[in-house]
Design a protein around this nucleic acid. Sequence first.
RNA 1: GGCGGGGUAGCCAACCGGUAAGGCAGUGGUUUGCAAAACCACCAUUAAUGGGUUCGAUUCCCAUCCCCGCCUCCA
Length: 505
Amino acid sequence: MAARSASTATAARRTGPERDDRLGEAVLAVGLQVHYTLRMRLFDTLTRTERELRPLDGTTFRFYCCGPTVYGPAHIGNFRTFVLQDVLRRALETGGLRSLHVRNITDVDDKTIRDSQQAGQSLADFTAGWTAKFHADCDRLGCLPPHIEPAAVEHIPQQIAMIEVLMAKGHAYAAGDGSVYFKIASFPGYGRLSHLDARDLDLGKTQNTRANSDEYEKDSLSDFVLWKARRPEDGENFWPSPWGAGRPGWHLECSAMIKEYLGDSFDLHSGGVDLVFPHHENEIAQSQCACGGHFAAHWWHITHLLVDGGKMSKSIGNLYTLDDLAARGFSPMEVRYVLIGAHYRKPLNFTLDSLTGAREALAKLAKSARLLAARIDGEPRFEAVDFGTFQAAWDSLQHDLNTPGALGGIFTGLREASTLTGEAAAKALAGLNRVLRALGLTLPEEVTTADVAVPAAIQTLADERWQFRLAKNWAKSDELRAALAAHGWLVKDGKGSYTLTPAEI
RNA sequence: GGCGGGGUAGCCAACCGGUAAGGCAGUGGUUUGCAAAACCACCAUUAAUGGGUUCGAUUCCCAUCCCCGCCUCCA
């Protein structure tokens, strides 16, 4: 039932206009084997090496991304991760590899409970609102909806079942208050992903050890909670379990939903770097102990972004949401361009200036692409493996998802294609479109005067000026141009006519 | 303290053991009455600092100085 409602939600999002589940025209089915041209190398956090991505089942690359906790609007830092994950998926499909993208919604935790109560809403209504907002923002950014988007609350039975298995195998224990903890000492592999020494953790050598009084029930300081006993401040937000009323711990939801939709072993697990420890470390412990599989074959983490060279935070006032940036006149696509403008393993320095730069770059890109398209007779011709002058851009993407390298390759490719005509231009344009699709970039349309409503008074003034200009009365003409500028309108003279555009702030 | 990621032109940012992609900004030119736009061209002998390895290093190694992240429910 839970699974059904999750897939229903997914089905609804499949109808979106940005929906793109074409498997890449490069797919050639030969018997039961599906061949793809992709040669994607990606850095793996666990082994700390670049490894080529190969689907375990030979046909479909199945991956999981830790999704948002829905208690407010996501900010650009969150979106750096989600956009890069979207680029990975698009690149897989561009290379002809089928993908299965699963991303969860965390709709129960301390913050969602606390904020829903403050808002005077039920937890379900509260999180449904912010989930919808998240989906809308993702759509605006051109992110493809995951194939499956399960929510934690809809998978409580699966989480309880996993805890029962862990307890039966001696990996978990119930504390006196009705909470259940994972026993880290029972899993020798703990700390491999984050390269933290489990003994140090246990000895409390870390600096920020919390003297949290409600965790005194634990056997060991580093043991983490699987099931949280109901507390008065939880209100009506609790579920029955063999250990009493309560709710699942955060780490468990991902393990349970992965088991449900991807099984015991799957291709790749991804999230922001901050999730390496403890979240992903804990997931490994839970899932390997409960399921016995290998869990994720590849671990992929996206580095945090900085704003103006420093940490983004609400108190400094540099925490931007898409709406904040829209209020400053920046489009989601400009935001996306900036977010893919740095390699995912390096800190990205987000500034408002970089958004302005992105606008100019996108406009230049769109212009060049239009010029290229104009030199073609008929439709762009698709070539299975030929990216034309954009091969270098595609190669950059395949090499550790080097998005800034790909952007550079696009501009270089455009310059190289600038003299091409006919068939060669058609191939180049097809290559460009494929790289743009892999990056999820949508080029801005040409804005003409017809798109903008010009006030009658301004139009009159501009017409008047045009007459003066035709009469070569430069003084009057310039005077009226200044007057129009004062009203916020820019005049651009062309051969036989002029254009009026609203001046930017 | 432990673990990890960085420091490349005014700004953003890549590749790479053989002497630095790309974008923004800037400069010059063409065009324009002027401007804007567009197009063309130019724009780091140099990669935080100091050593080392090498025929040769920005790229590998060591040290130092900065910046940033994580260290128990933050993407």
